[in-house]
Design a protein around this nucleic acid. Structure first.
Lengths: 233, 233
DNA sequence: GTCTATATAGGGATAGAC
DNA sequence: GTCTATCCCTATATAGAC
């Protein structure tokens, strides 16, 4: 039988059994990710995971010692891929505004491709984790890297001096909420936000917002603009 | 756990029992709001609510027929106050940019004053509701009203023609995430985001972001807005 | 209206055969 | 590695005394 490493950075890609079939363990992770995103940790029922995978509930415990360990495995998996992709863009050789664009587009793509993961991370920030679970330091590292990138170009006056940490955190929340809320709140949203057109729409919007926020020289427009147009009715 | 807000919105004021003392029912709602925000619907334990209120678990069922009904009562309460405040600003007689500012400041204040409510609403958008629960139409109405306000001034070319629905939804997500994530993710965030300074920081940031987004002629790389100001009228 | 005691269900986890 | 059967606990909810 194949060696199943307990921790798998991008495990799903390579942890195939020698028999060539797709690992049951990987299938469990997929299904669990779905349920954890959709229903949260407390709302996730192991027997439903087993049912969808097509095994008995007890068999789950052959692969994961507990519900909490299953949760940790799912989270580690999710974070790993996101970090990998974001870092690659971050380290690319691009001019800063293009890098911002690519960073955002890549991020939106990830979120759109794995909405359940995003929900899990959102839930984490809400404190929806197994009791006694401490949030990952990994995500901090990634966050810090992005903030550092922004700050560096602010120092050089290429980006406007907007609150960098707030901007980055805000964008994460913005993207996450756009995708998760649209099915519920967005009656006016045209079509499925996770569909091709929806993703493009989110992408376009987020890029525009952030580029406006980072554009230098665009500060005192607020009241000025409205007066210029003669607004205020 | 932090003390709960002394402010009593709407229903809680009048739903006194004939016994005449300060409503136990209201106290239950307060505590339940706390737990529902902090732990989610599935994660909320009735016996803990009872414990904190200082009654027996069974007594809860004297006031609410079920956990789900308790949840509905909490949500109705929360939504009511938010809608009331936002609408008041929305209908005020202000120039559009000032209205945007006040709208945002009021919203941030509400969220900061009742972080648990925000979490509950965020959780709703994640689908974290009692099974068989259908999301509120009320919030749609409010959302539509805000979007209509933005759209109207876009039509008049006072606001830039950015995706209005995405902007509004995005801001909601942004604010919510800033408050909920900072305790978890924001190691670099200076102090408690829900403290006075944290709230001001969020407020300042959100106002800046949105005003940049709505400013006409402030395309990335462009300096049109600055020229407009510099040139005077 | 609040309590004690209990009913009932369901969930996570284990034992052990195959 | 997967199954059946079951343990054990906790959670919602009810019954009924005071």
């Amino acid at each position: 039988m194949p060696a199943l490493s307990p921790i798998q950075p991008f495990g799903r890609l390579m942890a195939m059994s020698t028999a060539g079939e797709r690992g049951t363990r990987e299938r469990i992770l997929e299904v669990a990710e779905d349920f954890l995103g959709e229903r949260g940790y407390d709302g996730t029922r192991l027997h439903l995971i087993a049912q969808r995978v097509g095994i008995q509930k007890a068999s789950l415990f052959h692969y994961f010692p507990s519900k909490e360990e299953l949760y940790r495995a799912v989270v580690a998996d999710s974070l790993g891929e996101t970090e990998h992709i974001v870092r690659r863009v971050l380290e690319a050789d691009l001019n800063p505004f293009d890098k911002v664009r690519q960073l955002l587009e890549a991020y939106v793509d990830i979120v759109a491709a794995h909405p359940q993961r995003t929900k899990i991370l959102l839930r984490q920030s809400l404190g929806d984790v197994p009791s006694g679970y401490e949030p990952h330091v990994d995500s901090h590292r990634l966050l810090d890297a992005v903030v550092a990138f922004v700050t560096e170009y602010q120092r050089r006056h290429v980006f406007a001096s907007i609150d960098a940490l707030a901007l980055v955190l805000g964008v994460i929340g913005m993207v996450a909420f756009l995708f998760t809320s649209a099915p519920v709140l967005g009656t006016a949203w045209d079509g499925d936000p996770l569909g091709a057109r929806g993703v493009e729409r989110v992408k376009r919007h987020v890029v525009e917002v952030v580029q406006r926020c980072l554009a230098v020289e665009a500060q005192p427009y607020a009241t000025a603009a409205v007066r210029a147009v003669g607004g205020g009715d």
